[in-house]
């Protein structure tokens, strides 16, 4: 097997005197689905921000498919094949659903910054977007401004923006947050289907989604990794149980 899709080596991050992440190391093999769980404030979203270039690392390094991407800008990291979604929905509110997806697919379609070619002339891109619209169940909403969508539709589009670009590694930050049971099930089916052949890393609070999808789970608590491995071993880990005392602990059993 080649290099891991994503390799985090001893990441450290503090905001002022507050240490957010301490010595986080993690290898995610290519083609697997990996879930990162942990209580609120464990540093999960910060970890995504560090990996995708949103925030700068204090120490440590990030490797994508064998290449060091530490300190690179978000757009440079995307071009190396890493896409992400956001916990707080981050769309283009005045563009239509179709145009939102098309912007997300432009880099992979080789559009560049061209201002001498018609965007409609990229036929393969258009076809890919129509296909994605159907997969996301957003076909009837194709020409509606993203800002006018219902919340669940916006969440679906948020996932779509991360998936449509053809990245080999995809980071999803709470993809099912705020979705109903039925919507969550549809999202899980979609993720299962579209992550085939790719590496998926997701932060998820819904443990049923986690155990349904993930090949491996990493538990983050208080800025450090307290357990990492296949679902069965994580489920039985005593420290995980301690971190998850309360309602969620029952789901783990």
């Amino acid at each position: 097997m080649s290099a891991p899709a994503l390799s985090l080596r001893s990441l450290h991050k503090s905001f002022g005197a507050t240490s957010i992440l301490r010595d986080v190391s993690l290898d995610i093999p290519a083609g697997t689905r990996h879930a990162i769980i942990g209580p609120n404030g464990a540093g999960k979203s910060t970890l995504f921000h560090l990996v995708t270039g949103r925030l700068r690392l204090d120490r440590g390094s990030v490797w994508l498919a064998g290449d060091d991407i530490t300190g690179q800008s978000p757009h440079a990291i995307f071009r190396r094949g890493l896409a992400r979604s956001f916990q707080v929905t981050s769309l283009f509110p005045r563009l239509s659903v179709f145009e939102n997806l098309r912007v997300a697919g432009m880099r992979a379609a080789g559009c560049g910054h061209a201002f001498w070619r018609r965007i409609d002339g990229f036929a393969a891109l258009g076809a890919r977007i129509e296909e994605m619209l159907a997969l996301l169940d957003l076909g009837p909403r194709r020409d509606v401004a993203a800002g006018a969508l219902a919340y669940a539709e916006q969440r679906a589009l948020e996932i779509g923006l991360a998936l449509v670009g053809g990245a080999h590694t995809i980071l999803l930050d709470e993809p099912t947050a705020g979705m109903s049971r039925a919507e969550t099930e549809r999202a899980v089916a979609l993720l299962r289907r579209l992550s085939a052949g790719r590496t998926l890393v997701m932060i998820e609070h819904d443990l049923s989604v986690v155990f349904d999808l993930a090949d491996a789970i990493t538990v983050l608590a208080d800025g450090g990794v307290i357990a990492s491995g296949p679902p069965a071993s994580v489920r039985g880990d005593a420290r995980v149980r301690a971190a998850y005392l309360g309602a969620a602990a029952e789901v783990l059993t």
Partner: peptide, 30 residues
């Protein structure tokens, strides 16, 4: 014509949400 090109569409995207454009492989400043 420019509004109907990749650059025109990207300009709209940067207007709406420059941060997200950065995470879709384009430098908003460029």
């Amino acid at each position: 014509g420019v509004t109907r090109t990749p650059l025109g569409r990207l300009a709209n995207a940067v207007r709406d949400n420059p941060l997200r454009v950065d995470f879709l492989g384009y430098d908003p400043a460029r």
